[in-house]
C-alpha cells in the first residue's frame, strides 16, 4: 500500500552545501570547490564526477555518514568531456580501438555513482537529466526518499563545457543556454536532531510543474517568502499575474545547473555567511524562495527557511 503525501510541504533539513563555477562567487571561500579537481582522493573518475565528489565531501564535512546515505544528482548534458573524447576517438579511429575508460565515464549517472562509490553511499542513487530543471527533480526525489527512509542525501547538479560544446556555443547553436559551467551539492535529510546543527536551513516546500502553474504556487500562501530568487528567462513577472506578492531577484541562468548554485546562495544568505545585499535585501532574511523556469515551459519552486525561523 503506497502512501500519498503532498510533496509541496516538506521538512528537509540542509546541513551543508558547496558550489563550483559560475554562480558560486557569492559564497565564502570554504564552500567553493574548484572546477579543476585536485587531490588523490578524487582519482579514478572523469572531470565532473571528481568535482562532484569534492563538492559532496565539502557539503557533508563534520557529519557522521551512514551506509544508507543516498546520492541524487542532476545534469543537463552529462559528462561531456568523456563523451566527446570517446566519440571523437571512435570516429577518428574508425571504431577500431574504442576507449573503455572514456565510455564508462561518459554515462550520465557516472557523476552520482562516483560520489556513491567514493563515499560508500549504498542508499538510493539517482540521476536526473532534464535540462535546467535537473536539480529540481533531484531535490524532489531526495525529499520523497527521505520521507520514506529517514536517511541522509547528497543532492546536487553539475554541468561542464568542453571543447566541442564550447565551439557549438560560439556558433550560436541552440540547446546550450549559457557559456559557463558549474553546479552545487547540498547535504540534507537524515534523522538527526536539527537543533544540534551548527549551521544550515531547511527546505519546507517544493513544487514542480509548468510555468502556467507558477501563479497558483504563490496564491493563497499565508507566509510569503521575503524574496524570490529567480533563475530563468527574463520577465517572469508577466507570468506571475499579481503574485508572488514579494520582491523577485531575477538573474538569467549562468549554466544549466544554475538552480543548484542559486539554491546554495540562498542557503548561504539564510545562514548569514553571505550578505543579503547580494540579492538586494538590506537585512538577513529568514525565508527565501528559489524559482526556476525554462524556455521549455518547466518550472520549479523551493522554499527555504533558516533554522531559527
Amino acid at each position: 500500500m503506497a502512501t500519498i503525501v503532498r510533496a509541496v510541504e516538506c521538512d528537509f533539513p540542509v546541513f551543508g552545501y558547496a558550489a563550483s563555477g559560475a554562480g558560486a562567487e557569492g559564497l565564502v571561500r570554504d564552500r567553493v570547490v574548484s572546477l579543476l579537481p585536485v587531490g588523490s582522493g578524487a582519482r579514478g573518475g572523469g572531470r565532473l564526477p571528481r568535482v562532484a565528489y569534492q563538492l559532496a565531501q565539502r557539503a557533508s564535512k563534520g557529519h557522521t555518514l551512514r551506509g544508507g546515505t543516498g546520492v541524487v544528482f542532476g545534469t543537463a548534458f552529462g559528462c561531456l568531456t568523456e563523451t566527446e573524447s570517446f566519440v571523437s576517438h571512435m570516429i577518428r579511429e574508425r571504431e577500431a580501438t574504442p576507449k573503455p575508460r572514456a565510455f564508462s565515464s561518459s554515462v550520465h549517472n557516472a557523476i552520482a555513482s562516483f560520489v556513491a562509490l567514493k563515499l560508500n553511499a549504498r542508499g538510493e542513487c539517482q540521476t536526473f537529466v532534464h535540462g535546467e530543471l535537473s536539480f529540481a527533480q533531484a531535490l524532489f526525489a531526495a525529499v520523497l526518499a527521505h520521507r520514506r527512509s529517514g536517511e541522509s542525501y547528497w543532492v546536487g547538479a553539475l554541468d561542464e563545457l568542453p571543447a566541442h560544446t564550447f565551439r557549438a556555443l560560439e556558433q550560436g547553436v541552440r540547446g546550450t543556454s549559457a557559456a559557463h559551467e558549474g553546479g552545487a551539492v547540498l547535504f540534507g535529510g537524515g534523522s538527526e536532531d536539527v537543533s544540534e546543527a551548527v549551521a544550515g536551513s531547511r527546505l519546507v516546500r517544493i513544487e514542480l510543474g509548468r510555468t502556467q502553474d507558477v501563479p497558483a504556487w504563490f496564491a493563497g500562501s499565508d507566509a510569503k517568502p521575503e524574496l524570490v530568487l529567480h533563475a530563468g528567462p527574463p520577465a517572469p513577472e508577466a507570468d506571475f499575474g499579481s503574485e508572488p506578492g514579494c520582491p523577485v531577484f531575477h538573474a538569467p541562468p549562468d549554466h544549466p545547473s544554475s538552480l543548484a548554485t542559486r539554491t546554495a546562495l540562498a542557503l548561504s544568505i539564510l545562514d548569514g555567511e553571505s550578505s543579503a545585499t547580494l540579492v538586494g535585501l538590506s537585512t538577513r532574511p529568514s525565508r527565501l524562495a528559489v524559482l526556476g523556469t525554462t524556455a521549455d515551459g518547466d518550472a520549479a519552486l523551493f522554499e527555504l527557511r533558516g533554522f531559527g525561523a
Partner: peptide, 28 residues
C-alpha cells in the same frame, strides 16, 4: 503535467516507473 527525465544506466526504465509513482503520490 510535469515532465521528468532520468538516466540511471540500465535501470533507467524501471526507475522511471518509481519516479512516476512518486509524482502521483505527491499529487503533482
Amino acid at each position: 503535467g510535469p515532465r521528468f527525465t532520468i538516466s540511471t544506466a540500465c535501470s533507467s526504465g524501471a526507475q522511471a516507473l518509481v519516479i512516476g509513482r512518486d509524482v502521483l503520490l505527491a499529487g503533482l
